[in-house]
Simulated scan of single mutants.
Amino acid sequence: MAFIQAVLDGLMIGGVYAVISIGLTLVFGVMGIVNFAQAEFLTLGMFVAYFAWKFLGLDPLIGSFLSFVVIFGLGVVVQMTLIQRVLNAPPVAQIFVTVGLLIVIENLTLIVFGSDFHSVTTSYQTSTLRIGPLFIGIPYLAAFLMALLSAAALWLFTNKTWYGRAMRATAQDPMAANLMGINADRMRQIAFGLGVGMTAFGGAVILPYFTVHPTVGHQFVVLMFTVVVLGGLGSVAGAVVGGFAVGVIQSVSTLFFPIQLQNLVLFIVFLTVLAVRPTGLIGAAR
């Protein structure tokens, strides 16, 4: 029964891992750029939800939508002013720009918000749902359901709307997309905004059981890259599968090893999978 409980706990957190990682793989899939500042947008999303709770009285689950909108807009501006300029530059220039963006955002948040840890208080914060001998924390369940909702909304957008199809066309062949009347630059702006907005949304929904501070992104950045590479860099479906896999591996490993070795087990599995399938679980070779 302990194993089933561990798997259930892993699935709950894995759903959130998937959502915060979808944004990273979406940006890479459309623009071919690995955004090393992705986790900093998660931090900003958490701060937006925190201040929406503090000053507007919005529950973080509701504030997550505000986080998405605010960070989406910020992402569009960043893409237009910074990322667009290095799209055709050597990869090393792209890395420097996104790493520099990481440093700027982190230090700005330290200057503006200070180094204190902040948390919210909700009515369901310590509530649990019992299913027979199994227990699910309500905050974890709520975050998981919100993550599934956002992932489903993204799938509908990319597969059922004109903008979504245009964005996928831009990812496949920007020149052909331009010839078909699609504004490839606009699609890249939307893709980057969606990418960082989804990550901010995922950060906001975990606020009921997580504290926010300017360096909170450090706790997620390695996991995000692990998820997208394990699932297949550039594959949204791969990010979902990778997120659930990482969550379950982390949770189950604590049954057999000290929690300090949680990530060690994860990376052993990670390296083993890549040794067998270098393109990831779902990614395809180019």
Rank of each mutant, 00 (worst) to 15 (best):
P60W: 02
I105V: 14
R286C: 10
F225S: 06
A49S: 12
I13K: 00
A89Q: 04
T211D: 09
T122H: 03
G217D: 05
F3E: 02
Y209R: 08
L156Y: 05
V248R: 00
F55W: 10
I13Q: 01
V269S: 03
A245I: 07
I249R: 02
F135C: 04
G73R: 05
R168I: 15
F225P: 04
L74H: 01
I95L: 15
P60C: 10
G203V: 14
R188F: 12
V276D: 00
V273I: 12
S251H: 07
F72Y: 08
I131R: 00
W162K: 09
A93N: 12
Q189G: 15
V236P: 15
L134E: 02
M198I: 15
V104H: 06
L101W: 01
F113M: 09
T121Y: 11
A147K: 02
R130V: 15
M224Q: 09
F244R: 02
T254M: 14
M180P: 15
A93W: 06
L255Y: 04
V216M: 10
L11E: 04
P91C: 13
A6Q: 07
G232Y: 01
G137K: 06
I105G: 02
A39H: 04
G137T: 08
Q260G: 13
L207N: 04
L230W: 05
V92W: 09
R286L: 13
F3M: 11
V248Y: 04
V269Q: 00
E40F: 13
L108P: 10
V212E: 00
L102C: 05
F113V: 12
L145R: 02
S67W: 03
H213L: 14
A18V: 14
G247A: 11
A191I: 11
G234D: 06
V269N: 02
A245G: 06
L42K: 03
L101N: 05
S150V: 14
Q189L: 15
L110W: 02
P278F: 11
T272A: 14
F36G: 07
I190M: 07
R165A: 12
G10Q: 03
A18F: 10
I13G: 02
T128N: 06
Q79R: 08
A275K: 05
G10L: 10
T98H: 04
G234P: 12
A239H: 06
P258Y: 04
T158F: 13
T43E: 04
V222D: 00
L179C: 11
P208C: 11
A169P: 15
I33R: 02
G203H: 08
Y124E: 09
A284F: 09
W53Q: 08
L74K: 00
P208T: 12
M1K: 07
V77L: 13
L11S: 07
Q94I: 10
G280M: 02
Y50F: 15
V227Q: 01
F41Q: 06
A2T: 13
M46F: 10
V7T: 07
E106I: 10
A39Q: 03
L154M: 13
A171S: 12
V196R: 01
G202F: 08
F157K: 00
Q260E: 09
G243H: 07
F3Y: 08
Q125G: 15
L148H: 00
V48K: 01
